[in-house]
Simulated scan of single mutants.
Amino acid sequence: MAPPRVVAGTAGGGFTAIPVRFSAKSRASRHLFVKPHRVREAADRRRPQDRTLFVLNLPPYITQECAHRLFSQCGPVTSVELQEKPGTGSKSEKQKSKFFSGPSAQNFRVAYVVFKKPAGVKAAVSSKRREPWVLSPSDHPIKTGLQKWIQGYCCSIVNPRELQTEVDQFMKEHDEKTAELEAQAADKDGVPDEDGWVKVTRKGRRPGIPRTEAGNLRLIQREKRKRARKELLNFYSWQHRETKREHIAQLRKKFEEDKQRIALLRAERKFKPY
């Protein structure tokens, strides 16, 4: 969505322009465009319409902590959601692992800021002249340029012991959850449902493979051996097809020679009265 055109502290589409600067020493400034969040769909509990502020033109280096600090000047902030584009979206899930994070944002983003009271939204959309907000003050600096890349590189270095601990914990939880699901499925076997139908499975013929880490490793090794045998079998099949093709070519050649020989024999047996 293109930023609206700024006119004397206000903008088109019902937006209000808030001037911001990167630091106190910066002379250049840009604008954030804000307006109360209004949707036609049913009210979202995460975004109450009377306490939610919709924000446009957020720089990619702005974090949730920075946006929370900026809009706290208008009133107590309950939550901040950053998105690539406007929409209902889904609630940002808690990061499952500190070692593997998604790609960093490259474009300007939007935000949904939820205040504790409706007065925060009214203060944010007020058209009164205000001093530019500082995005990177001295007490909360934002790292950019070379410092940002150095920080990203340092964060990318993984501690093998901590990573192994996290992997072991994840696999333990996964195995426990799988065992619980299998136990629930086993309890339902042979039990008729509401309509009187009984679910029939192949467990009576073939025991199921437990989905554990050790079982998955055995399954992978079995697939590798099967693939190797299949490749060897395909090689011998190709060799067999070549031999068969050569044999068919020899039979055709012999067939043509026999046809010529029979034609000569028939010509010699032709009756000649004189």
Rank of each mutant, 00 (worst) to 15 (best):
A8L: 08
T16K: 05
A17D: 00
A17Q: 01
I18V: 04
P19Q: 08
P19A: 07
R21Y: 00
S23N: 11
K25R: 15
V34D: 00
A42F: 04
D44V: 09
R47Q: 10
P48V: 01
P48K: 11
N57P: 03
P59Q: 05
I62Y: 03
T63D: 07
Q64R: 11
A67F: 03
L70M: 01
L70V: 00
F71G: 02
C74H: 08
G75E: 00
S79I: 00
E81A: 11
K85Y: 07
K94Q: 12
S101Q: 13
A105V: 02
Q106E: 14
N107G: 03
A111V: 00
V113N: 01
K116P: 03
P118K: 03
P118M: 00
E131K: 14
P132G: 02
T144P: 04
L146I: 14
L146R: 11
Q147H: 09
Y153S: 11
C154M: 11
N159Q: 10
P160R: 00
P160D: 01
E176D: 11
T178I: 11
A179L: 06
E182G: 12
K188L: 14
V191Y: 02
P192H: 10
E194H: 07
D195L: 08
R206P: 03
E213R: 13
A214Y: 05
R218P: 04
Q221D: 14
Q221N: 14
R229K: 14
Y236H: 13
S237E: 11
W238H: 13
Q239T: 08
H240P: 03
R245V: 01
R245M: 02
E256N: 09
E257W: 04
P273H: 00
